[in-house]
Design a protein around this nucleic acid. Structure first.
Length: 364
DNA sequence: GAAGCGTGGGG
DNA sequence: TCCCCAAGCTT
């Protein structure tokens, strides 16, 4: 064994650990919609949705998504706008765009069959080491590691691994451990059981060791250090950004919306016109009015500020000053700019921050 | 390796 | 209120 962090592998009863873990999972596994069959496409969709996202949040999105896009064929031929609308509120929207792109590749290059080779599946957009291992093991029964945050937490305790799990390089240590530990008879259950245990029993704070099916095999439990593991450095604080946004309606009741850039934050979602405020040498209203004229060719009349929205991202905080106003005239219908009725607006995908604006400042 | 990328829930 | 996230990937 090359890695000094894996000394715990020398003493663990591997056969006993596998058996206790898999027996527990067989009895206690949750009844989840993506566990009803082994369709690699559905497993794939579920794994993308579950990235950095809780099971309870994903369930309704998964059910609606599979209803709308039941197969590789259906998703690969769908419009991105509809896919983003189905993803609206789930966050990390590049997941949806990458999934769309990857499914198209599977449709064209592999005749719609999700590949079962590590190299091929890892080459798909949005499929990293975790997702590749999850699909290969769960859908195809291959003994590949699927190391997520749960697995690192659980194994850091079982094997007393003190490496910082926030560091990208640590994942390789845990993959090495899984390659030694994994059941070749049932890789699917083994990987899922590690994650399920992390989600239900071996939780980040106050793990339920007395209910744990593998506590006899757990180094941290024996040493009484389960609350010290895993080691994980803290996140940085969010950076605040001030925005001024305008909800603008014309005399027929239509409102002006804009499609965001295809790169970066909330890419390809729609929004109400807005600008970042640095230093208010001029009033926000003046800056907003000039911006709408110059960038969108729209003449507007703005009222007083109608209210504020705060929205917290993982790395930013938006403080949005919301203004209401009228569109007096607009030059042309250019790409990425639309006047929409209150019925039409429902077909467009908005970030949650702008859904709040719709609710508070647009809808009656 | 570090930073960018969402959201809603829980202690 | 604040912090920590939750089945990570891309650049």
């Amino acid at each position: 064994m090359k890695n000094n962090s894996l000394k715990g592998l020398e003493t663990i009863d591997i056969e006993g650990f596998r058996e206790d873990l898999i027996n527990w999972f067989s009895e206690e596994k949750r009844d989840l919609p993506w566990r009803k069959d082994r369709d690699p496409y559905k497993i794939w969709v579920s794994e993308i949705m579950l990235q950095q996202t809780r099971v309870d949040t994903v369930i309704p999105y998964f059910n609606r998504f599979i209803e709308q896009f039941p197969s590789v064929e259906a998703l690969s031929t769908a419009d991105e706008e509809r896919i983003l609308k189905a993803w609206e509120g789930l966050g990390y929207y590049s997941r949806a765009r990458n999934l769309h792109s990857a499914v198209k590749e599977v449709h064209e290059k592999y005749g719609g069959k999700v590949p079962d080779e590590p190299k091929e599946i890892s080459a798909l957009k949005g499929v990293g080491p975790y997702t590749a291992g999850a699909i290969l093991s769960i859908a195809y029964g291959k003994p590949e590691p699927a190391v997520d945050g749960n697995v690192m937490r659980v194994l850091s305790r079982i094997l007393s691994i003190w490496d910082d799990i926030a560091k990208p390089s640590s994942r390789k240590i845990f993959e090495e451990a899984v390659r030694v530990l994994i059941s070749h008879d049932n890789p699917s259950y083994f990987n899922q059981a590690l994650m399920e245990l992390g989600a239900i029993v071996c939780t980040p704070t106050s793990p339920s060791c007395l209910l744990c099916p593998v506590r006899e095999h757990c180094s941290a439990f024996h040493e009484g250090v389960q609350n010290e593991l895993p080691v994980k450095t803290k996140n940085k604080k969010q950076r605040p950004i001030s925005l001024a946004a305008a909800v603008l309606v014309d005399e027929t009741g239509r409102t002006l919306i804009h499609k965001r850039s295809e790169n970066g934050l909330l890419a390809n979602l729609w929004e109400f016109p807005n600008i970042e405020i640095h230093l208010p040498y001029r009033t926000e209203g003046e800056q907003l009015t000039d911006f709408l004229q110059q960038e969108y060719g729209a003449a507007i009349e703005l009222g007083d500020m109608a209210g504020t929205i705060e929205h917290v991202f993982s790395h930013l905080i938006w403080n949005i000053h919301v203004y209401k106003g009228k569109v007096v005239s607009i030059k042309e219908e250019r790409e990425g700019l639309k006047m929409v009725s209150s019925e039409e607006i429902e077909a467009y995908p908005f970030p949650v921050s702008h859904q709040k604006m719709i609710k508070q400042f647009y809808k009656k």
